[in-house]
Design a binder for these strands. Structure first.
Length: 343
DNA sequence: AATGCGGGGCA
DNA sequence: TGCCCAGCATT
């Protein structure tokens, strides 16, 4: 039995029951693949269920408002996925009459669909002979064949892609591609895999060389930056507040938040007060809600956050009721504050 | 080629 | 605390 046949055999005996595995409908497969980009299966499942419930077909999603989609997506992260997904839903309805194209070439033209996702949809939904290359597959191939090329550099990606293509079986493309990913997620896990019960243990190069924990190789880059966020939580007597939508580049695009004063380091009450006075006018009272900073950790930056409660009589005509504010799509950082503050 | 983009789970 | 997760878009 060769590599691919062993993967297929293993998958047959170990596959999980996942909600998107009861169908090969392209809309369902597409939705699941977008959600699973850089996201664990366990985290994605409830979102997938929720979206299928709200939008059973691509037509339903195309008709929805972006704000509603972002609200449903809230907490899943990488919000550009939601925006691109919505744009693609509309595009599929407009230009493809609601039917997803079946080829890699057409799929990769769509927003939010790259090499991996195009291959996944083409193979899983349409049975085409395309090789998927995600974090799981990189790991399985790097270990089994003992390849130390960095998986996040061009040369390595190209090498692994060609290797993955060469391993594709003639039939069972759907199961093979899902199988090798599942194998990477369950058996050939990132840390401390139990190689003693691996069906590939007799021919795994990394295991023979005692290299399992060293592979795959990934060049690490980037340092974490600290940013200082000061949120201005306005309140008037009628339970209104102020919310703003984040526009432009950067994190949380199109999500809502309280008016924000960002600073280079920790800020004093006087500085906040001066800022509020200049931008919003006179206030009744202002005080710091959390003396201990809330540190919200993203993969590439730490947001050192203080919430300032600002009591102000007249919030103007852009004020929103607290009840309405809770319905806005917001980052987890804001959602957790609302929870804690009993907003 | 390098950087930015969330949030959570795990050792 | 650092790494990883069914990656993609932009610069």
């Amino acid at each position: 039995m060769n590599f691919s046949q062993k993967i297929l055999r293993w998958y047959q005996e170990n596959k999980r029951d996942l909600p998107w595995r009861i169908t090969i409908n392209a809309y369902n497969i597409w939705l699941s693949e977008i959600m699973l980009q850089q996201t664990r299966v366990a985290q994605g499942i409830p979102y997938y269920e929720k979206f299928i419930r709200h939008y059973p077909t691509v037509f339903d999603m195309a008709k929805a408002d972006e704000e509603e989609i972002l609200k449903l997506w809230q907490g899943l992260g990488y919000y550009s996925r939601a925006r691109n997904m919505h744009a693609t839903a509309k595009y599929i309805v407009q230009h493809y009459n609601g039917k997803f194209p079946s080829t890699y070439k057409e799929l990769i033209e769509l927003k939010g669909i790259g090499d991996y996702t195009a291959s996944a949809i083409a193979s899983i939904s349409f049975g085409q002979k395309e090789a998927v290359l995600d974090g799981n597959v990189f790991r399985v191939l790097a270990r089994y064949f003992g390849i130390a090329l960095p998986i996040n550099e061009t040369e390595g990606k190209k090498y692994f892609k060609e290797l993955a293509i060469s391993l594709l079986p003639k039939t069972d493309l759907r199961d093979y591609n899902q199988g090798i990913m599942e194998f990477g997620a369950i058996q050939c896990a990132p840390r401390n895999p139990d190689c003693s019960k691996c069906p590939l243990k007799d021919s795994c190069k990394a295991l023979q060389d005692n290299n399992v924990s060293q592979l795959p190789v990934k060049i690490k880059k980037g340092k974490i930056k600290n940013r200082y966020f000061n949120y201005l939580v306005f309140l008037d007597q009628k339970n209104n507040t102020l919310m703003e939508q984040r526009t432009g580049k950067g994190i949380w695009q199109n999500l809502y938040q309280f008016p924000l004063l960002e600073s280079n380091n920790k800020i004093t009450l006087d500085e906040v007060e001066t800022y509020v006075l200049n931008r919003f006018g006179e206030m009744e009272k202002i005080h710091l809600y959390n003396s201990e900073a809330v540190v919200h950790k993203l993969s590439h930056q730490h947001l050192i956050t203080h919430f300032w409660i600002v009591e102000k009589t007249n919030l103007g005509d852009t004020a929103v009721s607290i009840e309405d504010a809770r319905q806005f799509p917001v980052p987890v950082l804001i959602a957790q504050f609302m929870e804690r503050f009993k907003f």
